[in-house]
Amino acid sequence: MFELLKSVMSEVLQLNVDGLRPDASREDAGIDSLAVVELSLVLKQHHGMEITDDELFELATLAEIVTLMEQRKRTAA
């Protein structure tokens, strides 16, 4: 799931994901307050995961985002 997040960050958000680790902070990884909206829209449209931008905005690290993505993937399945 971390690889999926990185691919969305790279291809859709056009962020540099080289050497990015799961413990990186959301802000340091470049997911700012607008990018949480972009991420929320794409996860819903292309991956069937319902995660609001408010939820993403509350998360501090990429690992926390990945955990939420895994939860929502299970819910959707």
Binding site: S33, L34, V36, V37, L41, D53, F57
Partner: peptide, 11 residues
């Protein structure tokens, strides 16, 4: 309210 406007505008 920037973040909500961003989402609404795209949708």
């Amino acid at each position: 309210r920037g973040r909500e406007v961003f989402r609404q505008s795209v949708e």
